[in-house]
Design a protein around this nucleic acid. Sequence first.
DNA 1: CTTTCGTCCTGACTGC
DNA 2: TGCAGTCAGGACGAAA
Length: 275
Amino acid sequence: MPELPEVETVARGLERALKGRRILSLRLNRADLRWPLPAGLADAVQAQRVVAVGRRAKYLLVHLEAGSVLLAHLGMSGRLVIGGASGDGRHDHVVITLEDGVVVRFNDARRFGLLDYAPTVAALESHPRLKGLGPEPLGNQFNGPALAASLAGKKTPLKAALLDQRVVAGLGNIYVCESLYYANLSPRRLARTVTGARAETLAQAIRDVLQRAIAAGGSSLRDYVQATGELGYFQHHWAVYGKEGKPCPGCDCGKGIRRIVQSGRSTFYCARRQR
DNA sequence: CTTTCGTCCTGACTGC
DNA sequence: TGCAGTCAGGACGAAA
């Protein structure tokens, strides 16, 4: 489940493999992707050199020399596999061939992911998929007061608010659970009650959790480039996510980590520590 | 306007 | 061993 740290890790690995290389072709293998490729995408990227690979929220941004940008979202199961075929190739929906024999496959069994395109960097800002996204949690715009302002008046549970990409961009179920744990805040708390020092603590917890995860992902970059496409981020150790019934690592309450369902998604938390 | 909910998709897992 | 059933989740659009 790629969230911000995983996408950041992929972006760094991709940049290392693609930067400076020219795209020779982009081939679509199946027409029934959930979000069809933009018309003319293959022609638009043809013969373009990759100048950089970046990230906005959970979107990968492949910057091309003409100033255009190829966007990729990995959804739940999406991967960008560098090199050999991924598995039996059944889910290699898009294959991009570059100079020097470099091949990137957009492989996505569940097809929740997507590719998109912005003709210019200026258009990127107002691209339908990026417009309306909240601040980057690791950027300068994100801090306690900004987070409190976004949560002000919100009657939804804090958990749901943090999953809203308009509030803060790039968090998914895992890192929301982890951040709330380290901030000692209950996922059930009304979002609008998070102000002042609480918002400051939460903003800092979000940044810390993400930075630690990126650091861990960075150490497995070598694995990422392998033909298997494995990222290694499944080996992350979480404090609460997926830990139902396990002891809370931060207190001796004995009741352990609880799992509840909010908005149809699992939430993991310590009911004693998180208030 | 805000908020909630259903939809999509299939591999991995559970239980009989 | 086999098979049916359940679960996971991001983005989006419809409904409330």
